[in-house]
Simulated scan of single mutants.
Amino acid sequence: MTDVTKILLVIRSLERGGTERHLLRTIPSVSNAQNKIEIFCFERPGELAPSMKALGVNVVTPPVSGWLHHVPLILKPFSTVWTCLYFLFYLFVKNPKIVHFFLPAAYLLLGPFSLLHVTSRKIMSRRSLNRYLAKYPGWVRKVEQSLHRRMDLILANSSSVFQELEENEHVPHEKLRLIYNGVSVSQDDAPALRNDVRAEFGLPDDTVVLITVANLLPYKGHADLVEACGIVAATRKAQFRWTLMAVGNDNVGLKATLETQAAKLGIAGNVHFVGKRTDIDRCLGAADIGVLVSHEEGFSNAILEGMAAGLPMIVSDVGGNPEAVMHNETGLVVPAKSPAELAEAIEYLCLNRDLAAKMGEAGRKRAISNFSIERSAKDYAAVYNSLK
């Protein structure tokens, strides 16, 4: 009988986000008779937890974790101590063979405590460039670098993240692995889906629909995109109907500012912030061009989802974006924080619809061949098997 390897994934929660959706797509197929995976959400289960459980992966949270999430600020230290102690207790009770950390909060808070469980192998997944360290005091960087030295493996989700870990954070090459995100490709009837969703949003068939899928956060570049759309609308060459659909949660109250910006540019009627959606595939099916112009990025699920939907993608030249989108083949890569060049790219694809469609089809084929869920899951399984 084959021994079962117990693996504990550690993350803040399974609220809907890029990393969380990535885990929901890949981890259930990795958890099997040989690898029994549980997910430890140290703050709260999150919106995707029921779906993860339905696919056979247990999701664990500390008792009363939901209540602790809402305690007054003065009690936060007590809730943090409780979370750390329960995590340590859980490690020794369940005795996993492998502990795998996702995202900085889980790594920085619970990574040091995991070292007390000396029999388990440790993995950290870095899913972005390390710009997030700028908001922390200098000692946090030292803690992270100390943890790096104690990890058995560190996973990067793009070559740019891999390179940063190796060259700037001095992680040995032999300790690093590259696992790209995976994406599923819809088999739905695309024309019918397009007509259905456009009817829902009241979009005429001849309207060029731009879509960006990203939570409303400053570094995601929405302000650059709105400014670029204003430039497109102002040029005499733009003899076409267009609209921008921005899908994403307003986490920090940025929507009002962006709407004011659009109004000042005279394009308020063309720009629609539709909020968080659970039917992103349907929204992509209504679009003609995908856009993601972040100021920083690791490797974006949103780009892969757009490619899988057959959209030509316009992306900024940061992080893993140029690794996903081949310039002039599956879309266009533009400099970050450059609304003027972004406007040129948008106008070019809008005026060359046949070329845009060919780029979109090439992107779809690239997503299928290079960034499948099956490939990503297989890579995770290989990493876990290497540590047995």
Score class of each variant (00 low, 15 high):
I7P: 02
L8A: 07
L9C: 06
V10Y: 11
I11L: 13
G17T: 02
L23N: 10
L23P: 06
R25H: 08
T26V: 15
I27G: 01
S29R: 11
N32L: 02
I37W: 03
E38S: 12
I39Y: 01
P45L: 03
P45D: 07
A49F: 04
A49Q: 03
P50E: 06
A54K: 08
V60L: 13
P62N: 00
V64C: 05
G66V: 02
T80D: 13
L88V: 10
N95T: 14
K97F: 04
F102H: 15
F102C: 13
A105C: 00
Y107T: 14
L108T: 02
L110H: 14
P112Q: 12
F113V: 15
H117Q: 11
T119L: 11
R121G: 03
I123H: 03
M124E: 09
R126H: 12
R127N: 11
S128W: 04
Y132K: 07
A134W: 15
K135L: 12
P137Y: 08
R141N: 15
E144H: 12
H148F: 15
N157F: 06
N157D: 14
F162G: 04
E164Y: 00
H170I: 05
H173Y: 09
K175N: 06
L176M: 07
L176E: 10
I179A: 07
S184Y: 04
V185L: 14
S186L: 12
D188P: 02
D189T: 09
P191N: 10
P191A: 12
A199G: 09
D205L: 02
V208T: 14
L216T: 01
P218Y: 01
Y219T: 13
H222W: 06
V226M: 08
C229F: 09
R236M: 11
R236A: 13
W242R: 07
T243D: 08
T243K: 15
V247I: 15
K255R: 15
A263M: 08
K264L: 07
A268S: 14
V271S: 07
C283D: 00
L284H: 00
G285A: 10
A286M: 09
I289T: 03
H295S: 09
A302F: 09
G310C: 05
M313E: 12
V315G: 01
G320R: 03
P322H: 07
E323W: 01
V325C: 03
H327I: 05
V334E: 05
P339T: 01
E344K: 04
E344Q: 06
L351V: 02
D354L: 07
D354W: 00
A356D: 04
A357N: 11
A362V: 05
G363K: 05
E374Y: 02
A377E: 08
K378T: 14
D379M: 15
N385W: 04
S386A: 15
